[in-house]
Design a protein around this nucleic acid. Sequence first.
DNA 1: ATCGCTCATGAAATCAATTTCATTAGCATA
DNA 2: TATGCTAATGAAATTGATTTCATGAGCGAT
Lengths: 346, 346
Amino acid sequence: MKQVTVYDIAKEAKVSVATVSRVLNDTAPVRASTREKVEAIMQKYQFQPNANARSLLKKETGIIGVILPDITNPFFPEVFSGAEQEGREFGHTFFLCNTIGLHDKESEFLTMMQEKRVDGIIFMGGRINLKDCKPALIQEVVEHAQKIPLVLVNGNLKDSGLTRVITDEYAGTVLAVKHLIDIGHTKIGFIGGESHMSTTAVKIRAYKKTIKDAGLQLHEEWILPGSFSVDSGREQMEALLKLTDKPTAVCCVNDFTAIGAIKAAVEQGLRVPDDISIVGFDDIPLAHHVIPELTTVSQQANSLGRTAVRVLRELMSKEKVKKVYSLEPELVIRQSTAPVTDGYKI
Amino acid sequence: MKQVTVYDIAKEAKVSVATVSRVLNDTAPVRASTREKVEAIMQKYQFQPNANARSLLKKETGIIGVILPDITNPFFPEVFSGAEQEGREFGHTFFLCNTIGLHDKESEFLTMMQEKRVDGIIFMGGRINLKDCKPALIQEVVEHAQKIPLVLVNGNLKDSGLTRVITDEYAGTVLAVKHLIDIGHTKIGFIGGESHMSTTAVKIRAYKKTIKDAGLQLHEEWILPGSFSVDSGREQMEALLKLTDKPTAVCCVNDFTAIGAIKAAVEQGLRVPDDISIVGFDDIPLAHHVIPELTTVSQQANSLGRTAVRVLRELMSKEKVKKVYSLEPELVIRQSTAPVTDGYKI
DNA sequence: ATCGCTCATGAAATCAATTTCATTAGCATA
DNA sequence: TATGCTAATGAAATTGATTTCATGAGCGAT
């Protein structure tokens, strides 16, 4: 069954396609009787105008492309959701591309979005955040950004000149470590992500600064790398607990790591938070479903998405925008942290 | 900066647009020297063909639309991911639409996808699965399906004539309940979702049948409704534990509910699984991150997505397809279930 | 020399909308 | 009555690709 076009409608209504278009878009006055006639026929055939044809002419698609590393990581659906909420009232539709494990797909997706002529791109890079990210990729992203409005979310590319929306990870980490210090901890460890990720570097810097500012001793052996995963949190926590001089609190690079750390501690017979305090980062929905509920730093993922779309829309309308929009994270105190006790069991 | 078109390329290369198109798509022989000349110019201007123009003519967009209730529910990203993996090698791109809390958006999204002329639609309905779903909505989905290939994922619309990919929830529930019986439980409860959801109805039917087939007594007061959420699992578990005659095992409608149930039990001082066994449904990634790790029925969300795309592609190529593709769920035994002990503490 | 074939290419039509420009009718004003 | 204005409409151009049809060149066979 062939799709109905404006020509079919026009023919049956004995008017020109221009008139049909006017009825469709209310772009010029049409006599009431004509309008009704045309509308009736559109109704009859369940006419749906072809958005491709329209986009071709208008040079806008209403589509926003989103590129992110892994949609199964609960942080990203949250961001996406925020973006969608913000975009909905303006009629935006979203392409979603997962680069999961396929870092080299990033440029392929960028090209695809160019070809589809999306109105804007939200880029949450995986690879682009590597400390040793190839300048070529950065260059490529920058070039795409010159053709299509693009905002980088949580990307740490300082001198790329790209518009960025980020959480202040430094400030967030300070919040977490300060909280542990405030409730009396003096022996605080840190489990990070891959050491070549800039996120890890930023957070470790914040951690060290806060420890030093509080006049505490810095123990390099309490600072361990990881991989942002539950398993890495578990492994590294086991390592920490094998030390003779153990920390009484651990700050983790993200919630997954913290959940793994809790698991390891519990498996060793420790009670969280009675024997050891653990704090995460991100505040994924799961954080208040685990036992004990996780004290963590909220990234406000939803706002991140909303802001990204807001900024993107400003870019699209050629407004001048700031280079960086930084969202302040918040500490969410739940059950996995508590004041130090003397009776550290092991 | 104006976008470069085939005409610009053709002009500069002193050939016709037809030749440029041939170089682009390798659709007819072109002299090597001509090809090189054209390619060099395309390279020079970073030419990206306009996919909208192409789609207009070819009547295909390579886009698959996905409509789902809530991307922040970890089950759905998993399905989406599977779909994306399957679609990737055929060059499909994905629209993602969240109907979260906006059930009336479902038809709006369907219309939008029609207008964008997507090649196919994967529909994971929220509202469409209500037992009292308005016939009008069903009718609408069916009508859309006549124009654009559409598969319903986990939709329980038996007589709609729509192509469906589903998990066999009945069989999965039987698996879960049998497992509890096998390890010695005779007093088994069930916490469901909203009672007007067909999922709930199917699972309760399976639960009852399995209990009866094993010759066990059916206790209606052990069968409670819920809302698929962590909180509802917690509340309903509290209710079960207030009974004088309590179950020693509880089967839950999904993992969220099970996680809530575990929380409630732990808060009441019970040990899971020593004092009470709990089994979930879905096997969300989180299931092996909670403490204790959750015994659950795996929906194989990823395969669900992959299969949906596979079936959709068959539909697109006008192949005849079966009406229903049913995936067999699997029982995943972890730590939240164990044989009954006499020493039920409370 | 002529026929038939393949290779390489171009002109023009096509897809389904929007938009510009022109035209007509009807009415008020000078 | 002539002029000017607005409302309503249509014809045709436009958007950026693909595709069909036509044409010419080059080459081998007869």
